[in-house]
Amino acid sequence: MSRPISTRSSLESVFKGWPPPVLDPAGPYAGSISVLSWVLFAMAVVVLGVVLAALGVALFGGQRLKSRLGGQAVIWLGGIALPIVVLTALLVYGLSLTRNLGTPAPPGAMRVQVTGEMWWWRVAYLDSSGKVALWDANELHIPVGETVVLELRSADVIHSFWVPRLSGKLDMIPGRVNLMKIKADKPGSYGGQCAEYCGGPHALMGFVVVAHEPAEFRRIMADRQAALASKPPSGGRGEQLFASAGCAACHRIAGTPFNGMAGPDLTHVGTRRTLGAGILPNNRGTLMGWIGNAQAIKPGNRMPPYSVLPADDIRDLALYLEQQR
């Protein structure tokens, strides 16, 4: 009954607030924007300083200084020449940076489809021919040091994909495919969140990108591939309940007859860091809480409450899901 408990990384390490992720980039695409942020910040402070100094002189300065400031010349200098110089420089910088960030990814880069859904993320790893190799949800594994191209789509309303430590955000718009490049320089978990208001529990639509050393990454993917090929039926109560309680209508577990596509894929749910689209730590207890009454945790989400199930059933379901690795 009592399996050893694995302590997974807690949410804090994923959704860190300080230092601000925008200024604490973990890859080159976020990195150049971080540099830009500092430049802009410096520009803003200097210009604000100039304005405040001018205002100070205008209000409290000596008569001589004041009379110098009190003419049209200062408008031409401060209000026209200064902005034109500063803005021209910024425009050139901004446009070149936009171009560099917009160059297409190297051919053969790994591609992943990420689809925003109300209120979670469908993930599909594509093979080199563009076919789906593996399904997953709410979590994306990438190799360190490689550019990964994300094909961003939406299944319902507009969402926006944002993992600030890896890249700026890009919208997921019904009827369109937007391409985003991400690249991590060091292993770790990077949190993200939907950034376009998508109704209901938009606030609780998180995401995790996990970067591994390339070798480790390939091992994980290979293990997963191997796992789907031959998933022996567990024969446990959990598996029976998964069928009888109707879970399979929405959820898929590869290598089993459970094939629902409306909700997140659960093939590897046991390995995930988070539950409920990046909002809860994933452990047996939270799994039980989520299965039993997800509405109490993330009001408005699409998973109905299973309060009718006896607690024993919920526990067995949780145990079954915990084994899906």
Partner: peptide
């Protein structure tokens, strides 16, 4: 709060 006892 961290381990999510409150989810049950």
């Amino acid at each position: 709060a961290r381990v999510g006892c409150a989810s049950c």
